[in-house]
């Protein structure tokens, strides 16, 4: 038995062996993947995007969520003026030296939503899918067409087969399980928050972001995709502000190690050549 055939056999077994329990148990749609400029060996945070993301975070997200490991003052590194940072802090009833804590108290949040909104400082690191997860949470709600489809469904208290098929396709549900589709439609009509990508689909958070909800100072378009992308990129920075330092250090370290290892290999070859 050769090593290669073993590797192939193992790969085949693993491919066949993807657990089906996860697929059967009402799991959400697979996360759509985005290109993130800060990812990869040479990826960097873009200051303009950070400014836009910080703006959405302060004006929208911080209505309920905190970003407790970041202080307002840190935002100046992206080019905000001291006055702008002061204004942002004041909008939350804070000073520029405070941490980014939401003005909504935990008790109020619990009264309104039933749960305390999680802190966003580590959100892009703390969920499977990382940045793509955060982006999917911001964009996975029903759009206008889909909402209309759901609202017009079940007018006579029953779903037609064609309705089941089209709703299941749009909402990433199993079309062979009409009971489940019916339950989902009923819950949405009762006002629960449906997100295509959230595991279990129903979510305490109402749709947080709408297109054109903020106005960007740099004139960038404000469709939902752009807002979600900027916000997620900013939260990725908030999750690891040392990311750029890490990568630039890493490039030097790897370069040094490649040189060192090549030299060591040459010395090893030369030393051992005397033996043979």
């Amino acid at each position: 038995m050769t090593f290669n055939s073993l590797v192939k056999a193992t790969a085949l077994v693993l491919a066949l062996a993807t657990p089906q329990a996860l697929l059967a148990g009402g799991a959400a749609a697979p996360l759509p993947t985005q290109d993130w400029e800060h990812k990869g060996m040479f990826g960097e945070f873009d200051n303009n995007q950070m400014k836009r993301g910080a703006q959405v975070t302060v004006e929208v997200c911080m209505g309920c969520h905190s970003v407790k490991y970041i202080k307002f003052d840190f935002l100046r590194q992206f080019g905000f003026t001291e006055q702008e940072v002061k204004d942002m802090a004041e909008s939350q009833g804070q000073t520029k030296k405070s941490r980014m804590i939401s003005s909504m108290s935990e008790e109020d949040a619990k009264d309104s939503f039933g749960v305390i909104p999680p802190d966003l400082s580590l959100m892009t690191k703390a969920r499977k899918g990382y940045e793509d997860y955060t982006y999917a949470m911001l964009t996975g709600y029903l759009n206008e067409d889909e909402s209309e489809l759901i609202n017009n469904a079940m007018e006579d208290d029953a779903l037609s087969d064609s309705e089941i098929q089209s709703i299941a396709a749009k909402l990433h549900l199993n079309p062979d399980d009409p009971e489940k589709v019916k339950e989902v439609v009923t819950r949405i009509q009762n006002g629960e928050n449906f997100n295509k990508y959230y595991p279990g689909n129903f979510f305490a958070m109402p749709q947080p972001l709408m297109a054109d909800q903020v106005e960007y100072a740099d004139g960038t378009k404000t469709d939902l995709h752009q807002l979600a992308k900027d916000t997620t990129a900013f939260l990725a920075w908030a999750a690891e502000p040392t990311l750029m330092e890490r990568k630039s250090t890493g490039k030097g370290v790897l370069l040094y190690l490649i040189l060192l290892t090549a030299l060591l290999y040459a010395i090893k070859r030369r030393m051992w050549s005397k033996l043979h």
Binding site: M41, R246, K247, T249, G250, K251, V253, L254, L257, I258, L260, T261, L264, Y265
Partner: peptide, 14 residues
């Protein structure tokens, strides 16, 4: 050690 550190540092930094 050189080869091992290369792989290890790739994970640590990237």
């Amino acid at each position: 050690v050189g080869v091992f550190l290369l792989i290890y540092c790739f994970f640590v930094f990237f």
